[in-house]
Amino acid sequence: MLSTEHRLTDAATFRLVSRTGRRSASRTLVVHLALTDLSGPRVGFVVSKAVGNAVVRNRVKRRLRHLVREQLTSLPDSGALVVRALPAAGAASAAELAADLDRCLGRLLPRDAA
């Protein structure tokens, strides 16, 4: 579980990050990263009904939260990250999600921070 200070909760910041942030995509995920005026890295997740039923969506969110929690130290201090699951994420294994998240973050983060 992500602690409260690392959660991205307001819709305006979600929109800002999704529209103005740098983007990287894979088969299962689209990751947006933007620098904001928030303190500490913040992370939000978007998992729509296209991913699957409620059980599948919640499983994908739990997996993504666990994977992103391990990556928090590599994010910029004022960074906001939005991870959007694509429909293929519903059928993907935890290892596939981890590989796709690592690949996307590797493209977005500077080489010295990754």
Results as ranks from 00 to 15, higher is better:
residue 55 V to Q: 07
residue 1 M to G: 13
residue 41 P to S: 15
residue 27 R to P: 01
residue 63 R to N: 07
residue 62 R to L: 07
residue 52 G to K: 13
residue 107 R to L: 07
residue 2 L to V: 08
residue 20 T to F: 13
residue 10 D to F: 00
residue 92 A to C: 00
residue 55 V to N: 08
residue 96 E to H: 09
residue 93 S to L: 06
residue 1 M to D: 12
residue 43 V to E: 15
residue 37 D to L: 06
residue 70 E to L: 08
residue 64 L to T: 00
residue 105 L to V: 02
residue 91 A to D: 07
residue 77 D to A: 15
residue 55 V to D: 03
residue 20 T to W: 12
residue 113 A to Q: 13
residue 17 V to Y: 01
residue 99 A to F: 08
residue 75 L to W: 03
residue 13 T to H: 03
residue 63 R to K: 07
residue 31 V to D: 01
residue 111 R to I: 03
residue 100 D to T: 04
residue 30 V to A: 07
residue 88 A to I: 04
residue 40 G to Q: 09
residue 81 L to E: 10
residue 49 K to I: 04
residue 47 V to E: 04
residue 16 L to S: 02
residue 88 A to E: 05
residue 29 L to T: 01
residue 21 G to T: 06
residue 105 L to P: 02
residue 42 R to K: 15
residue 47 V to F: 09
residue 35 L to W: 07
residue 100 D to E: 04
residue 25 A to D: 12
residue 112 D to A: 13
residue 100 D to F: 05
residue 6 H to G: 00
residue 50 A to K: 14
residue 111 R to C: 02
residue 75 L to H: 05
residue 33 L to C: 00
residue 111 R to H: 06
residue 54 A to V: 14
residue 23 R to S: 09
residue 89 A to E: 11
residue 71 Q to N: 01
residue 41 P to H: 15
residue 9 T to S: 09
